[in-house]
Amino acid sequence: MAIQMLLAPIRLFGRHVLDFIEKSGGMFMLLVQILLESKSIIRDRRLVLEQMELIGVRSLPLVLITSLFTGAVSSWQAAYQFEGFVSMSVLGGATSLAIFIELGPVLTALVLAGRVGASIAAELGTMKVTEQIDALESLAISPVRYLAMPRYWASITMLPILTIFSEFIALMGAFIVANQLLGVSTAMFFDSVQQFFRLRNVFGGLAKALAFGGTIAIVGCYVGFRTYGGAEGVGRSTIEAFVLSAALILVNDYILATIIF
């Protein structure tokens, strides 16, 4: 009895490890299949463009609003921490650096994980439980080519583009707060931005956005394709897709930060 109680947490841990390995392997295999199916990307450009509109254009308002307030709060928080120690003349540079390297790519990715990753999982999950995926197969159409491949390429291209928009608007948010509420002049703010600006930081951030875009699409498609159990299963998949992609975005962020910067 005592041994059983001692073994229970080990068993639980083992089950989670096995589950993690299975999911990682499954997502890697899906990525390989998507890359193999990508030879038809020119032929399937209409599907990719449709997804680019859904993933990119329709996410823009949410990304812009989130970015505006993120920039604003980062400027306010930085000023609070600088007070008495650091000159306000570096406020523009410090916030812009945080926006280009970290806030822009990561927050855009997290917003898209909620809006796009979860919706991919819900859409494909519904198709799975209502046999629409089987119907595609019965028509000799590969679901990976028809459904996952366009979502992957659309997500991987649109996330860096959305990140550029996000970074610009966040910088504007930071500037408005610095200028209107903290008394930093326009010239002082943008001189500091220019002084701290390194193209490498911007490209590093965009490289991260590229990886996050791939992560969101792969997780959404993988979880969607594995859905079972009707409406309840679709709900479970939607949550799982968001939680898994948000966690992977943050883990990847750390790994990529140590490599790039």
């Binding site: 046999e131 089987d134 119907a135 197969e137 019965s138 028509l139 590969s142």
Partner: peptide, 23 residues
């Protein structure tokens, strides 16, 4: 293999229980 399977499937039509139309 999948490609050969698709060739066979083109000979077969299937009506699914809940129709499985693409919404």
């Amino acid at each position: 293999k999948r490609r050969d399977m698709y060739r066979v499937r083109k000979k077969i039509g299937m009506l699914f229980q809940n129709s499985a139309l693409f919404d």
